[in-house]
Amino acid sequence: MKRIVVSWAVLGAAALLVAFAPLPQSARAPTERLFRVEAGDFAYSPAVLHVNPGDEVTIQLVSTDVVHGLYVDGYDLRMSADPGQSATLTFTADQPGSFRLRCSVTCGALHPFMTGKLQVGSNFLLWRGVGLAFLALFGLLFFRQPSPNTDH
């Protein structure tokens, strides 16, 4: 019984560590980053923007068909571009993680699903999630006490 309690305590501590331990971010010096993002046919191109934490990011949105917008989850920033025109948004990528880009102007049938991604540094949320999933697997396979059953 004591062994089980210790095992669970160790597993719980490990889970807390994986979930909340501070992780080092990239030590690269912040730079200026410029992206020309084309919006058309319910997609952004490029669809994924990679930057480092602290970078000063400028997104130049160019619409190739109808009016499109761009909203950055987490940063709560938005802009829109008329057909054939471009609009510019500059901000400092001070929050690390992965953020969805969404079209903020109704642009057609698939508008709610017109998405892209801004990746600032490492996606620690994902890695923490993966770590917790493997920890759960480890606990289930090696620690969890079997349920009462029938021996056939």
């Binding site: 046919d41 319910f42 997609a43 952004y44 191109s45 669809a47 994924v48 698939l110 699903f113 017109m114 998405t115 892209g116 991604k117």
Partner: peptide
């Protein structure tokens, strides 16, 4: 629907 791939959506 949620991925960034416009070709798939279309």
């Amino acid at each position: 629907l949620l991925g960034p791939w416009g070709t798939l959506k279309l």
